[in-house]
Design a protein around this nucleic acid. Structure first.
Lengths: 273, 273
DNA sequence: CTAATAGTGTCTATTAGACAGTATGTT
DNA sequence: AACATACTGTCTAATAGACACTATTAG
């Protein structure tokens, strides 16, 4: 190994191709909450989680649905890539984004070696007024609970239904060593089932110890609405008094009311930092 | 854009250099617990967190300390790279590893664009019997609590003392959007202060809802030892009865005892899955 | 005996879970 | 009036925090 006298000298002589380079992409799991209009005028809307998918118009996985994503540019900050792509797909800026996980199986893309850093984004759907890219669509998420470490996720946009299963595999003798394996997937491209599952779990965990949920809420909301969002993320019903105790320090009462719902009006709240 | 009839045809024609490729490395935060012998023969050893650093023998950052790491090979699974590097540095297999975060600032490495996926590893130091690589050394960690979002970390291996500070910066109006910025660092290479801080926080959080801590423990341990490990990770004292309530379902009593400590002997426990 | 840690009993304070009740709009 | 949700009071169960006490070894 040659000896250098200074970092400058070393850098001048450095061969950047000593190790074969690879490609880096980013995939964005955009999550939101959907309301499905109730048939009964009195009943409040049912809510469900939804994820933004785009239809691939080119190979590989042509005509399949996948998470929005793209290549990270050589000079681009890793955190900027998902922002750029989100802007392209939703025409929105300043959206909540957090890094989820980096997937690096050598065979995850048929083209070549591509490592992908996934991000999770939470948005309030009401913010996009017809700004959605034409090839993008919201899919409602149904998560079937795990029997012997198998999770099945069903996505539905009213036209297409995508269904896949993921198996949680204990790898070694050490504690806390799970890997996830897609066992049944003909409907969604790449390893995106893993991204979706990882994101849903992250969201569920962060719900209790962060204020992350307010990124999915409009500025003003009723506690009933907020509770329904909690319930759909956690996948279980909550008792009213318990829920109100938990969130009482996170929200601020306004003097606005939501009326015209076929029942007693409710006070609108806003997020209190 | 050319139309292809099949994925095979597309792949045959695919230009892998459409986007400029980059390099991917991995950095491993190896954490363990150190005991510093007490002067008083009766007193139990003080414990502290420790991190494994290696001295760089080449540019860039020549002669500075940094986390063990290296390039991810083109054909290598991302998860395999840290295993390989850990084997090289500690000669140990089957060690707990989890992915931490991927750092992708374009200027984080002076050589070229290098994105780095960091991993956290937890080990029981007793497992390495002189197997440590010569250029590697354990540094005790002291974490000075944050005043106005500033964290200072001090690392000490008995010879060198490394000190740096990290500032937590609220980025935008959205909830839960922090970025971290190294404000004072002349002692440790790359953006490794961020990796260390991220890992310590991850460990602290996971302590309460996982069994991750047992990766740092020997097969048999006393509850006093386990409690000291909890205390050094959390940075605060715990009350005995409360601690024993919390871990009672995670440990199994053995019929072994630890004696000769200058005070009442204690029962040895082992991890119960 | 003393110093030091091991280990337990119990009281209290806080938090979580459950249920029942009252309130108030729309149709 | 009936329905559906809004909102609250209160009891109980479970958990967390605190303190005090006993136990047991080496020296």
């Amino acid at each position: 190994m040659k000896e250098y006298k200074s970092e400058e000298e070393f850098l001048k002589d450095y061969n950047p191709d000593e190790f074969k380079k690879l490609s880096l992409t980013t995939d964005i799991l955009v999550l939101s909450v959907s309301s499905t209009d109730s048939s009964n005028y009195r009943k409040t809307d049912e809510k469900s989680m939804s994820v933004l998918l785009v239809k691939r118009d080119n190979y590989p996985f042509k005509d399949m649905w996948c998470l929005p994503g793209g290549f990270v540019m050589y000079d681009e900050d890793l955190d900027e890539a998902p922002k750029r792509i989100l802007k392209r797909e939703t025409n929105l800026d300043n959206i909540y984004l957090e890094q989820l996980y980096t997937f690096g199986n050598p065979n995850r893309d048929p083209r070549m070696r591509i490592v992908s850093t996934s991000y999770m984004s939470l948005i309030d759907k009401n913010k996009l007024n017809e700004n959605l890219n034409k090839n993008a669509s919201w899919f409602d998420i149904t998560l079937y609970e795990e029997k012997n470490n198998l999770v099945t996720i069903c996505l539905d946009n009213g036209v297409d239904t995508l269904k896949f299963s993921i198996k949680k595999v204990l790898r070694e003798e050490t504690t806390d060593r799970y890997s996830f394996e897609v066992v049944d997937n003909k409907s969604i491209a790449f390893d995106h089932p893993l991204v979706i599952l990882a994101g849903l779990e992250r969201l569920r965990n962060k719900l209790e110890y962060t204020d992350i949920v307010f990124n999915m809420m409009p500025k003003y909301f009723t506690l009933g609405e907020l509770q329904k969002v909690y319930e759909v993320i956690l996948g279980k019903k909550l008792l009213d008094p318990a829920f109100r105790r938990i969130i009482k320090d996170k929200v601020k009462k306004t003097n606005k009311m939501k009326t015209g719902e076929g029942h007693r009006p409710s006070v609108l709240f806003e997020y209190k930092k």
